[in-house]
Design a protein around this nucleic acid. Structure first.
Lengths: 169, 169
DNA sequence: GAAGATTGAAGACTCAATCTTA
DNA sequence: TAAGATTGAGTCTTCAATCTTC
């Protein structure tokens, strides 16, 4: 990109700058959202789980599906423990496979989400949507989709389409 | 299936989808980078600290500056403890203010970074740069810069004047 | 009193081992 | 034997309290 930078200057590489921008923008927005979520007695990971359950048919998902979809690779058991202790989710048996368990959102859980979401959406609007011109936003989301599809093949199932593809790696 | 979404459907709001895309893309890229960093006996936060030290004049920064710049709000002391135990950084006194301490990268620390960075840069190229067309990348980085400047005023030190802090959270 | 940094305690995450069921 | 889920041990993070220096 730039001819003025010596090829041995690893630390000043523009790719580092690009990734740094990605990190600072994302963690900055996330910090805004986290503050509001915490004010409703939830942490980010709990909010994420409740949101996915809210959007799932029947308000429930298998523990293993939650583990695959969220960033929590192995901590999902104790996260559901905490939510269950607070009455926001319930564990229910899976009839077709007795190894499996559903995490099911409760009425209290839905009420909590209904309380959190309006403010949450406003913050997304303020710190993401409103900062960009309409076509700039389109380009931004298009780029994110390309990246997401590349780094997380098969992850487009839970967000827009209810069709759950069997996870193949 | 294309039908209108009811205005009261909080859970299906497109703003949720936009933020979800942001999250999945970022965490997906980060996961790729983390794997390579771990293979060099570092974790992401340690790599971040060493990178900042590498890019700083004299290879050193105040503990408080590191705490402010990274996502570690209060854990910087123990992170430097670990790096110092591994011989990658050293604590040195700050002559002008005896309350302060510098974290200084060692030769061993620089060598470690020199070993990690080429592969790191390749991964950024593969999972971020190469996925986008040149002008698409420009637009993407421009959008990230706008967002970063809004959510982290003052983080773009040296480029432009720091923006005034927003009045409300 | 306030800022820079460290410490202890509590909570959360990760990894491997374990248990049950397919 | 493999998959879904839980558990225990160790590590890391967070929060408030503390100590030193400004």
């Amino acid at each position: 990109v730039s001819h003025e930078i010596a090829p041995t200057d690893l630390f000043g590489d523009p790719r580092i700058t690009a990734m740094g921008l990605f990190t600072e923008a994302f963690t900055g927005v996330t910090a805004k959202l986290a503050t509001q979520i915490v004010s409703h007695k939830l942490v980010m990971a709990e909010f994420e789980v409740l949101l996915r359950l809210s959007r799932s048919p029947g308000g429930r998902l298998r523990m293993s599906d939650l583990a695959a979809q969220t960033s929590l690779t192995s901590g999902i058991t104790r996260l559901i423990d905490r939510l269950e202790r607070g009455g926001l989710v319930e564990r229910t048996a899976c009839p077709s496979d007795r190894r499996g368990l559903f995490a099911q959102i409760t009425d209290l859980g839905r009420a909590r989400m209904t309380a959190v979401l309006p403010g949450h959406l406003e913050l997304i609007e303020t710190w993401l949507i409103d900062l960009l011109e309409p076509d700039e936003l389109d380009g931004f989301l298009g780029a994110l989709r390309k990246i997401r599809d590349a780094v997380r093949p098969g992850a487009s199932a839970g967000t827009t389409e209810p069709a759950p593809a069997p996870a193949i790696q």
